[in-house]
Structure formats: structure tokens, C-alpha cells
């Protein structure tokens, strides 16, 4: 098993080192990713300034939902978000290179990059989650802690599944790749 995974480990290690080597660019990427997280939070806050509660949730309870959803999504984005570059590989013909290598396509695509710059956005999600758990006086019983961790795990898994499914659809969409976009 360890022998089987070794190429991926080496590849990912190289990606991580590559991202660190352009320090200024990496720092800027971290900052923009942080800003994306903060602006999303600001949008929730702007809406809640105008009203006390939406659908039975006040700001503190909405923050708990935000924290869970944002952390799960950004973890998925960090791990597999780059699979949405597939249409570019397809159009440029560089996808053929992946087909020549003796490794599964999806595993190659996922390990083709790791978006460490999105760590700062995960940071925003986790911070909001921690603040929200404290602000909502969630009793920290073993059951609740387990539920929180399980929500993050399954939430990320669901987002990863959707990312991969959307990338798979790109084989048929190509030009219409925006159809599966996660931007408005």
C-alpha cells in the first residue's frame, strides 16, 4: 500500500515545495483567499444588520451554519478544487499526457496540485465555527464534539463528491464549463 502511494506522496511534496518557492506570490494568494472568506462573512453580516432573524435563525446561529459550511467547502476546495481546470487541459490537448501515465486519471488530477493558498480561507471558516460554538453556548459534550467533527468530515466529503462530479461533466460540456460554476 505504502509503495503504491509513494508516487503521489512525492508529487504532492513537490507541489507543496513549489508553492513555497515563490514566496511573495504565495503570500499574496494567501491574503486574497483570506479576503474571499472575510467578504463572504461580511455579506451575511450586512444582511443580518437589516433584520433580526431569517427563517428562525439569528446572527449567532447563522454563524454556526456559516462556519460549518464554509470550513467544509474550503477543505474540499483545498484538496480537490483544482479539478475544475480540467476543461483547460481538454481544450489545450494537454490532457493526453495524463492518459499516458500508468496511474488512475482522477488520482493524477487530484494530486496535480494542492491549493495551499486556500488554507487562509479554511482559517476563516474554522475561526467563525469556534466563535459560533462558544457564542451559542453549545454544551461541549462528547456527542456534540463528535457531531461537529462528523459534520465537517461528511460536509467536506459531499463537496469533494460534487467537485469531482462537476469535473467529470466537463468531458461533455467543454465550452459550457460555466454550467457547473460555483460562482453566481
Amino acid at each position: 500500500m505504502a509503495e503504491l502511494l509513494r508516487p503521489y506522496r512525492v508529487l504532492l511534496g513537490a507541489r507543496v515545495r513549489a508553492q513555497h518557492s515563490y514566496r511573495a506570490s504565495f503570500a499574496l494568494d494567501l491574503v486574497t483567499s483570506l479576503l474571499i472568506g472575510l467578504v463572504e462573512l461580511a455579506e451575511v453580516w450586512v444582511l443580518y444588520r437589516a433584520v433580526d432573524g431569517i427563517g428562525g435563525l439569528d446572527l449567532t446561529s447563522a454563524l454556526l451554519v456559516f462556519g460549518l459550511a464554509d470550513t467544509a467547502f474550503s477543505i474540499a476546495d483545498l484538496l480537490v478544487g483544482h479539478v475544475d481546470t480540467l476543461p483547460q487541459y481538454l481544450r489545450a490537448g494537454t490532457f493526453d499526457v495524463f492518459c499516458l501515465r500508468p496511474q488512475p486519471l482522477l488520482a493524477q488530477l487530484i494530486t496535480s496540485d494542492i491549493s495551499l493558498r486556500r488554507l487562509s480561507r479554511v482559517g476563516v471558516g474554522v475561526t467563525v465555527l469556534v466563535v459560533a460554538v462558544l457564542a451559542n453556548d453549545v454544551p461541549l459534550t462528547p456527542e456534540n464534539i463528535l457531531l461537529l467533527l462528523l459534520s465537517l468530515l461528511t460536509g467536506s466529503a459531499i463537496c469533494i463528491g460534487i467537485f469531482v462530479a462537476a469535473a467529470g461533466a466537463q468531458f461533455f460540456l467543454i465550452d459550457a464549463s460555466e454550467l457547473t460554476s460555483s460562482r453566481p
Partner: peptide, 8 residues
Amino acid sequence: AALGGLIA
């Protein structure tokens, strides 16, 4: 592309 954008 326009159709994809429209659906999104």
C-alpha cells in the same frame, strides 16, 4: 458557453 452561463 452562453447556455452554461445562463444555467449557472
